[in-house]
Nucleic acid binder design. Structure first.
Lengths: 205, 205
DNA sequence: GTGCGATGTATCGGGCCGATACATCGGCCT
DNA sequence: AGGCCGATGTATCGGCCCGATACATCGCAC
């Protein structure tokens, strides 16, 4: 899942690991706390082995002047390859069960600006369905099995149910906006008003 | 983390794996979808190796009458041991960073009826602190880095921020209730009114 | 001049997940 | 009668991800 996120960030600009982690945290902070280095570095190596990113040891400006007295490691800058861009396009367009999961949905959503509208709608609706199922499960427990459970467990379920209901409402709103060709901030992108855009192109560089 | 949950459920009554999973789902449904068998069975084996649970192959009533023509496997019933009960008491009382994490907090909370009030308060306050930090991080991003992010990413952050604020309010309420000696349903446990109880004993069996 | 927090790369053990395999049971359709 | 199917039930495997840990440099404040 982080493959998609890393590819997406490196598409904007090359970065080294530490920077990548900070950007990831900023972009996905609403979904998960922070990606661990124990996930980040192995993922980078995987992406590299697949040929989707390349590693370029950072050469300091006017390089050989300082001849590495302490043989310092230096930062490792990663950049996306042409194959990596294809892979990103493939991943961003592909919807499956994991795109509706908490983390998977969040990662996809974070790159919605680079996703075509049909895919956005598919993911939004899949997520809604998933959350609705969860909500129904919680209602069942609160209705049928309430007397079997203690007050704390019930309170937990109520809180979870409330969160589900809120998320469904949020998703409904987003879906309605998508259908009427609005972005989340309420603006209509492009020059012509109405549902004319099909995709928002990525910013240059 | 599931060690705690499994030990807690088996303390109520012996169960086989499938049943355990269903109960786990009912009890923790508000936190996570469902524990996978790929987690459940290895965990059960770990608990067994540590001597905290024992395995008893279910002998059907009037056992040897059907002499196992197809050598059927039969359900495996797990029950908690005395050491397991000690371990549960140890785990339930111990608070650390993982008790404030999403899953860890949820598991602890689900067994608050078996947790003494001091620990309940420690966990609730630790969780609140954690969610507040997350909330501040999101506010920072929405304030300082807003212009760097696209409309969808911002919308995601807003939704996350809203969820944080709600959870903090929820926790505040729970903490206030604990301090004034109320359970989540608003009742005052025990015979005497006021903050007299220190712990809710587990039900028999 | 030294300690300390931020920056920076990296590994290791272990927990957890999804996919998969296999087997039984009861009920329903034909 | 026979067959299909969904619920019940136990179990493994590869792989992702995490927390803990280690190590090194940089700039700055004391």
């Amino acid at each position: 899942m982080f493959e998609l996120a890393i590819l997406g960030l490196l598409q904007e600009s090359p970065m080294h690991g530490y920077e990548l982690r900070k950007e990831l945290t900023a972009k996905l902070g609403a979904i998960r706390a922070a990606i661990s280095y124990g996930s980040l570095y192995p993922t980078l190596r995987r992406l590299q082995a697949a040929g989707w990113i390349t590693e370029a040891a950072e050469t300091p400006a006017t390089a050989e002047e300082i001849p590495a007295l302490t043989s310092r490691r230096g930062r490792v800058v990663y950049k996306i390859t042409a194959e990596g861009k294809e892979r990103f396009a493939e991943l961003i367009a592909q919807t499956g069960p994991e795109s509706y999961e908490d983390t998977g949905f969040g990662v996809h959503f974070a790159f919605f600006a680079r996703t075509d509208r049909a895919t956005r709608l598919r993911i939004l609706e899949g997520r809604r369905r998933k959350v609705e199922e969860r909500r129904e499960g919680l209602r069942d427990v609160l209705g049928r099995a309430a007397e079997r459970l203690d007050a704390y467990t019930l309170e937990l379920q109520r809180h979870g149910l409330d969160a589900c209901e809120r998320e469904v409402r949020w998703l409904e709103e987003l879906i309605a906006n998508e259908r009427s060709g609005r972005t989340p901030d309420g603006s209509t992108p492009g020059t012509a008003p109405g549902p004319s855009e099909e995709n928002i192109p990525p910013p240059p560089g």
